[in-house]
């Protein structure tokens, strides 16, 4: 079996296209929403009354401990049960898949990010809360001006790391037939059984995108956290 370099090079274009149009879009949109949701969960876990907080914590645990593919299929099934495809006839199937994908990815990873935020919030000394109380700052202001900016500094590298993890999970979109990069690779390779070339290219694109980002996060971590 020869490695068909020419075929591999031909595959780079379409794969990069799928990468930019789907993988990257889902990752960026998913990370931003997940970072916001995660913060809301983390603050909620400190501010809500105990019974609601316990329910929230449990729900987050369940989401965190159950698989993404199952959640993706679940989201599509819900969408179908509400007759979604017929309600939005103008939106094409792929876009709907991507939107559902972003929703599921962001909720799923928000549960991990919430844990990171929580750790960041817990790492802030009691003195900061006490100083804020001594100045009678309103609770919202304490969060916005004192706690969140400090927690964010300690949490940022972790958030970045979860975003990278999310990025590498995007091929799960295959299960709901969203044409992201690996799906595209499989389709291209399947025609002539030239899987070696396409998956090598797909793997290299992943590596080229995630490795430098991960190294950057590690540097950031050293700078911000210690």
């Amino acid at each position: 079996m020869e490695f068909d370099l020419e075929f591999a090079l031909e595959a780079v274009g379409p794969l990069l296209m799928a990468f930019l149009q789907v993988t990257l879009v889902v990752t960026v949109a998913g990370s931003v929403i997940a970072a916001l949701l995660g913060l809301i969960w983390a603050v909620g876990q400190r501010e809500l009354p105990t019974p609601i907080r316990m329910v929230l914590t449990w729900v987050l645990d369940v989401i965190r401990m159950t698989p993404l593919p199952l959640q993706l299929l679940f989201a599509v099934a819900i969408f179908i049960s509400f007759d979604g495809y017929r309600r939005f006839p103008e939106t094409d199937v792929e876009t709907i898949g991507m939107i559902l994908g972003v929703a599921v990815f962001s909720v799923h990873y928000s549960t991990y990010m919430a844990e990171s935020y929580r750790a960041g919030i817990e790492s802030i000394g009691r003195g900061q809360w006490e100083a804020a109380t001594a100045l009678s700052l309103p609770r919202i202001r304490v969060w916005r001006a004192v706690i969140i900016p400090q927690a964010l500094r300690a949490t940022l590298p972790s958030l970045g790391n979860w975003a990278i993890a999310m990025f590498k999970d995007t091929p799960f979109l295959l299960v709901i037939l969203v044409p992201e990069m690996v799906a595209k690779a499989k389709q291209l390779g399947g025609a002539s059984y030239q899987y070696t070339e396409v998956f090598t290219v797909a793997g290299l694109i992943f590596l080229a995108a995630s490795y430098p980002t991960a190294v950057l996060m590690r540097k950031l971590e050293k700078k911000l956290v210690y």
């Binding site: 000394g125 003195g127 006490e130 100083a131 700052l137 202001r141 001006a145 400090q150």
Partner: peptide, 29 residues
């Protein structure tokens, strides 16, 4: 609001400048 406190460990807000530390409560409280 009529009571103020100075702590053993200072407890300044490290994410704010000296000025921001001082004006935070007068402005927002």
């Amino acid at each position: 609001k009529r009571i103020g406190m100075v702590f053993q460990q200072f407890n300044l807000f490290p994410n704010m400048t000296v000025c921001e530390n001082i004006i935070e409560a007068p402005v927002h409280v």
